[in-house]
Each structure stands twice: as C-alpha cells, then as structure tokens.
Design a protein around this nucleic acid. Structure first.
Lengths: 196, 196
DNA sequence: TAGAGAATTGAACACCGTTCAATTAATGCG
DNA sequence: CGCATTAATTGAACGGTGTTCAATTCTCTA
C-alpha cells in the first residue's frame, strides 16, 4: 500500500470530487475535464482512473453528493408545521437551485452514454428524496389513495425541476414575466388542490 | 459564386441540418460532431464553418426546427373543441416526445457556453409556442386575470417539460410507477382548477 | 481565353478521454 | 538495517474533438 503522499485512497477521492465540484461551480459542465481535475489536486490524469471508472462516473458521484445536500435542506423545510410545509419546501428548493445553479444544473444536464444507466445505489437516493416530500405533504392530501398521493408528489417534483431548468437556462424569462419561484408556489398550491 | 457541385448555399445548409438531425435521432447529442455531419453530406469539416458560426449554432438551428415541428402538432391539437383541448394537447405533446425522444432531448440537453445566449430570432419562436397554448386554454380559465392565465400556462409548459425530461432520462421510472403521460394529464387538470 | 473571386479543402493547433508500460515509493520480511 | 515485493503513480501515446486559415479548386465574367 504505497502512496505518493499522505492521501489515503478515500481521501484522494474526496479531494477529486471537491475539485470537480469547484470547477463546476465556477464554469459548469463544459469546464469539467479529467485533466483539469487532476491538475487541481496535483496528480496526473491517469490517477483519476484508479478512483473512478471514467469521467461519467465522477460526475455521477458529484451529482449524488448534490442530491444529498438537497435532501438536507428539504428535510429541514419539511420540519415546518403542516400548513406551512408546501411553501417552505418550494422556498427551500429554489433557494438551493439559486445558490448553486451550475451544480444543480449538472444534475440534469449530464447524460450517461446511450444504453448505460445510473448505478444501483443511485436509485434509493432519488427514491428517498421523493419519499421525504411525499411523507411531508401526504397529510395535506387525506382523501387520496396512496397511489394518487405518490403521483401528485412526483408531478410536483418534476414540475419544480422543469421550472428551475427553464429558469436556469433562461428559457423562461423569454416567455414569462413572473418569477420562477412564484410559478413553483402556484404549481404546488394547485397540485394540492388549492383553490387559487 | 463558384461551388463544388449543384448545391446552393441554402440547399447546403438544409442538407447539413438534415444530416445533423439524422445523427441526433440515431445517437443523440454525443454522436453529433462536425466531422460526422461533414462526412455525411460529402464535404470537408471546414465547409460547415461557412454555413454556421460553430457547432453550437448548428445545434440551435436544429432545435429551432424541432420547435417548429412541435408547434405544428400543438396547433393541430388546439383545434379540438374547448373541453377536449387540455387532454388533446397533453397527448400531442407526449406523442411528439415519444416519437423523437433524442431530438426532443436535444432541445434541453444542449446548453450554450457560459455567457452566450440564444439568438434574437429564437425568442419569438418560443413565445409563439407558449402563446398558442395560452390562447387555446385561456377560455378554460375565465375568472383569471391575463397574468394569472399566462402564469398557469407557463407552469404547465414547464411541468410537462420536467415530466418528459425525467422520463426520457429514466429518472422517473426510478421513483414512479405511474406513466409519465398520466402525470401530464394530472398536472394540466389540476392547473386548470379541476377537482380530481 | 484570361482573370477575378468565391467556395472548398485539409493540414495544423490545442484540446479532449482513456490506456498502459514504465517508474516510483512504501511496506513487510529476513 | 537492507532488500524484495507490491501497490500507487506517472506521462507518453492513441484516436478522437472543435476550430482556423493558407492554399487550392472551380465557376463565372469580361
């Protein structure tokens, strides 16, 4: 078990992900290259292939960390009293997106090569995130079946994603004078059966 | 005005876009390269730079054509009698996405470099598409202000986009057993103030 | 037919992801 | 303590990428 310096493999991986994160935050996906990550941590490009299968793998792990961070802020928002939860969750979601737009963009901008799909450990992460929201908002849809509540939650989730994506890529300001955040609130209110 | 063969500049541009379209339909954004497009139309790579500013420009024009095609099918769906329009529009949208998933994906997968924004002629195209939907569904929201109707329309638009994106990248099957299409109907029903 | 001028080429440049034989350095052992 | 083992690390190499631009080819006009 020899190593160049005092970086254990796990530590090195953490460093590489942190470097990748910094690059994405500064320049987005287009600036993220194997060589740049390697340079930033003071290693040769080849070394990264001991830690990750390839660049796609690194990106997927970067995205997993972003999902974890999102989960943290959503859990916090879900602590609010029942009536306030929808608004708090929407606020937390948009705060997150606006505070790290490029990192959040990476979540959806990056696509695995044709035919490859996300690793098995990714699925539970996503499911947990959705489950968290579903559980927080479930009591607000009492007269619905479990399936209906799940469908409503997923629709809200996808809807917020859609609004944010269009906003971040400025394809929304092209057609809407309303703030994305307000659209998010509107969406959730209506999906929960609100009257206005 | 000398040319290698019988292709006028406009014709050549059309050919290049058609070649790009074919590549994207077969392999998605990852397969679309300047060299491949050039090879497909029997020209040298350099020639494409007489037709387009760069690859991004070619992709934007490809996307514009996709938007036009989407407009055509939505216009057709909007012809339905008022009560049937929401369902017809959702069906038309998903039919479009499912019939050309990779072409539709390109619409949102591609991002211009940091700081560059979409050309001026792109904005009206998007606005027209949204306007079309807003006009078709406006009568179903009679007790709303113009701004509220616009906001609801944009939210539906973004929501359908979100649902489709997650579905195409199979990040939806990970968490939802419901068909994306059904989620789209649910979204539109609720946004229009439907009770179920 | 000669010249002008536009379209087209393709080599060159600087990058990219990825591989892998060679090198380096730390460890366990005698 | 010194040496052999073994693992981490390197960096050159390969085939690709977008893009540029001097040189070439071709067509039209005079």
């Amino acid at each position: 078990m020899a190593r160049r310096s005092d970086h254990a493999p796990e530590e090195l991986k953490r460093l590489a992900l942190e470097a990748g994160r910094a690059i994405v935050m500064e320049e987005g996906l287009r600036g993220l290259t194997v060589r740049r990550v390697a340079e930033r941590i003071g290693y040769a490009p080849g070394t990264l292939y001991n830690l990750f299968a390839n660049l796609d793998d690194l990106i997927v792990q970067l995205n997993a960390a972003t999902l974890d961070a999102l989960a943290v802020v959503l859990v916090e928002a879900a602590r609010a009293e029942l009536a306030a939860r929808p608004e708090r969750l929407v606020e937390a979601y948009f705060d997150f997106v606006e505070s790290r737009p490029r990192l959040w963009s990476l979540l959806f901008e990056h696509r695995l090569p044709e035919g490859e799909d996300l690793p098995d450990w990714y699925r539970p992460k996503l499911a947990a995130l959705l489950g968290l929201v579903a559980e927080a908002l479930g009591p607000l849809m009492p007269d619905q079946t479990r399936e209906a509540r799940q469908a409503a939650t997923v629709t809200m989730w996808a809807g917020l994603h859609g609004i944010s994506t269009l906003a971040v890529t400025s394809k929304l300001t092209l057609v809407a004078e309303t703030e994305p955040r307000a659209l998010g609130h509107l969406l959730v209110r209506r999906m929960l059966g609100g009257e206005n």
